[in-house]
Structures are given as structure tokens and as C-alpha cells.
Simulated scan of single mutants.
Amino acid sequence: MKQRFRIGKISFQDPLILCGALAILLYFDASGFLRVGLLAAVLHEMGHMIAYLFLRHRFPHIEVTMTGFCMKTRKEHFSANEQLLLAAAGPGVNILLAVWAVFCLSRRATIWWSAFFAANLLTGAFNLLPIPPLDGAQILRCLMQSVPRK
């Protein structure tokens, strides 16, 4: 039986397992690359949340699981343009942060900025793959809907 813990509009599925696994992974992350990767993933999801806030003027329902974050929007209606904005916001944030990291690297090269660049570039690019449930599949679906049919 799955356990759930809720704080406002954020629910955690199996929070003890999630926190335990995260604590073990972070304990053994001597290089710090996992931390930077998690930061890129959280910033990616914040991009989706900011787009949702822009569209709906309220905070979305978020579910945190072992596989990541998920905004619960099934009962809501979004136009194709709104769906496109929501889907593109996450990878867009990662690409913008990767560009910012390149600027910071040009001023002062550090391992942290290199890792931040790589984590954001990989997170953004991976999520653009046109495979459900990734953002790329949603973006492709929205673009296909906007193409006029003959």
C-alpha cells in the first residue's frame, strides 16, 4: 500500500522511501554532481510551475514520487497554445540556465559551473525527446495539432 503525505498542494508518494533513498544517494555523492543534477531537475519543474502560475494565477497540485515531480492537471482544460507553453517551459528554463552557465564559465571557469551547464543541457535535451511522458511528446503533439490539414 502506497503511503501519501500532503503539505498544501504538494503530495509525496511513499515519503519514507523517497527521503531514505535520497539521503543515501546524497551521502555517497562525493563529487556533488548528483546535487547539481537534482538542482537542474527542480529548476526544470519550477519552469512548468511558473508557466502554470502565469496561466491560472494559482499554484498547481504537485505530486513528488521516486521518479520525479508531476503536476496534476488532468481535470483542467488548456488550449493547444497553453499546453505548448506548459510543456516547453521546463526545457526552456534548462536551456536558458545552460546559456547563463556558459556566460559564467566565460568569466571564470569552475567545475561547479561546468557541472551546472552539463546538468541543465542534459535535463533540457532529455525532456525534449518525443517520448511520452516527456515534454517533447507533448510539444510535438501540440505542434501537430496546429498544422492545418488538407
Rank of each mutant, 00 (worst) to 15 (best):
7 I>W: 14
8 G>W: 11
9 K>V: 07
10 I>M: 11
11 S>A: 13
11 S>H: 00
12 F>T: 13
12 F>E: 10
13 Q>K: 14
13 Q>I: 15
13 Q>N: 08
14 D>S: 11
14 D>P: 09
15 P>N: 02
15 P>L: 02
17 I>Q: 14
20 G>A: 01
22 L>T: 15
23 A>I: 12
25 L>K: 07
27 Y>P: 00
29 D>W: 02
29 D>T: 03
30 A>K: 13
31 S>P: 14
32 G>W: 11
33 F>D: 09
34 L>P: 03
36 V>S: 05
37 G>A: 13
37 G>N: 09
38 L>Q: 03
40 A>P: 11
41 A>T: 11
41 A>F: 11
41 A>L: 13
42 V>Q: 00
46 M>Q: 07
46 M>F: 14
46 M>C: 15
47 G>T: 12
47 G>V: 09
47 G>P: 05
49 M>F: 03
51 A>R: 07
51 A>T: 09
52 Y>L: 06
53 L>D: 01
53 L>W: 10
55 L>T: 12
56 R>C: 07
59 F>S: 00
62 I>R: 07
63 E>G: 06
64 V>Q: 02
64 V>C: 02
68 G>R: 06
68 G>E: 04
69 F>P: 10
69 F>W: 10
71 M>K: 00
73 T>V: 08
74 R>S: 15
75 K>Y: 10
76 E>M: 14
77 H>P: 03
78 F>G: 02
78 F>T: 03
79 S>M: 02
79 S>G: 11
82 E>F: 08
82 E>W: 11
82 E>K: 09
83 Q>W: 15
84 L>K: 09
84 L>S: 07
84 L>P: 11
85 L>S: 07
87 A>G: 12
88 A>R: 07
93 V>F: 07
96 L>D: 08
96 L>P: 08
96 L>F: 15
96 L>H: 10
97 L>Q: 04
97 L>N: 01
99 V>Y: 09
99 V>D: 09
100 W>H: 04
100 W>E: 04
101 A>P: 06
101 A>D: 05
103 F>P: 01
103 F>A: 00
104 C>H: 11
107 R>G: 11
107 R>M: 10
110 T>N: 00
111 I>G: 10
112 W>P: 03
113 W>L: 02
114 S>F: 12
114 S>I: 15
115 A>R: 09
115 A>Q: 10
115 A>M: 06
117 F>Y: 05
119 A>V: 08
119 A>Q: 03
121 L>P: 00
123 T>L: 05
123 T>M: 05
125 A>E: 06
125 A>L: 12
125 A>G: 07
127 N>R: 04
129 L>C: 12
129 L>P: 12
130 P>Q: 00
131 I>R: 00
132 P>K: 08
133 P>F: 05
134 L>V: 02
135 D>N: 05
